[in-house]
Design a protein around this nucleic acid. Structure first.
Length: 262
DNA sequence: ATGGTTGTCGAACAA
């Protein structure tokens, strides 16, 4: 059994103690992280290597940043994928995607742009980014190598994935264009392998730091593991580690874990 | 109370 997880850590430098403790506690073999928020030279490689993990990181500045750590092999690292849209002034490609092959599975750690607001240029960037991911997913699905798209999608695909549709109605993450973009990736050849094992109402992966959102159970399900059909058939179980959102120094996202038949 | 919190080579901005 291989245990594979994804987690938006919201700064690896401020979270490293908790991430290290979590890995030791949960016996996870591969962890995809998002929002490492650091450059290559700032990443705490030694902390993971001391635990027996190989590390691949993609970080360009204090924003975004994605990584994969693995103790079951880590090969053929890709930073980004073709034709990703650019952002900023000057417009550049951001560190939002890294891929690696671990235990024969092609894994991607993805940090989909936030979108910010329905009328914000960042929303156009988000939708363009997701369309490129859709194109890539079609290509990967045709290759027959088992693969998974893991990360923070910044989309709540279904009404039950937010604590209140009324609250989010005029905000990003739930709009029809965003949901259509998410569905288009699914249609390209992957399925959500976590939801079938975590279908309880009120199951979320993210809770805002403000307004006592976690304590009031006001969250969103926006972190997903989407697997190709050959891999999906091997998924034996899945869980969202809500406990990790508790206490001082927690990320605002919870880790999401799947168990895969070796 | 147009509020709250966390992170970043901060002093605004992103989430």
């Amino acid at each position: 059994m291989v245990r594979i997880a994804t987690w938006n850590v919201n700064s690896i430098r401020s979270r490293i103690d908790r991430v290290e403790a979590w890995l030791q506690r949960t016996d996870v073999d591969v962890l995809a992280m998002q929002e490492t928020k650091c450059r290559e030279d700032q990443f705490p490689f030694d902390r993971f290597e001391a635990l027996g993990y190989e590390v691949a990181h993609h970080g360009l500045n204090q924003w975004n940043g994605v990584a994969i750590v693995s103790r079951v092999g880590l090969e053929d690292v890709s930073r980004g994928f073709p034709d990703l849209p650019h952002w900023g002034e000057p417009a550049v490609e951001e560190a939002r995607a890294i891929g690696a092959t671990c235990a024969g599975i092609r894994l991607w750690s993805l940090y989909v742009p936030n979108g910010r607001a329905l009328d914000d240029p960042h929303m156009d960037y988000k939708l363009a980014w997701l369309d490129r991911l859709r194109v890539q997913t079609e290509a990967w699905a045709a290759e027959q190598v088992p693969f998974a798209l893991m990360g923070d999608w910044n989309i709540a695909p279904q009404d039950e994935d937010v604590w209140s549709m009324e609250y989010y109605l005029d905000k990003s993450h739930v709009s029809p264009p965003e949901r259509a973009a998410f569905q288009a990736v699914l249609d390209a050849g992957v399925t959500d392998v976590v939801r079938p094992h975590t279908s309880e109402p009120g199951t979320f992966t993210y809770w805002d730091y403000t307004r006592l959102a976690f304590q009031k159970r006001r969250g969103m399900r926006i972190d997903f593991i989407l697997a190709s059909d050959p891999l999906a058939k091997r998924v034996q179980g899945a869980a969202i580690d809500r406990e990790e959102r508790k206490g001082k120094g927690a990320s605002d996202h919870a880790p999401v874990v799947i168990e895969v038949e070796a």
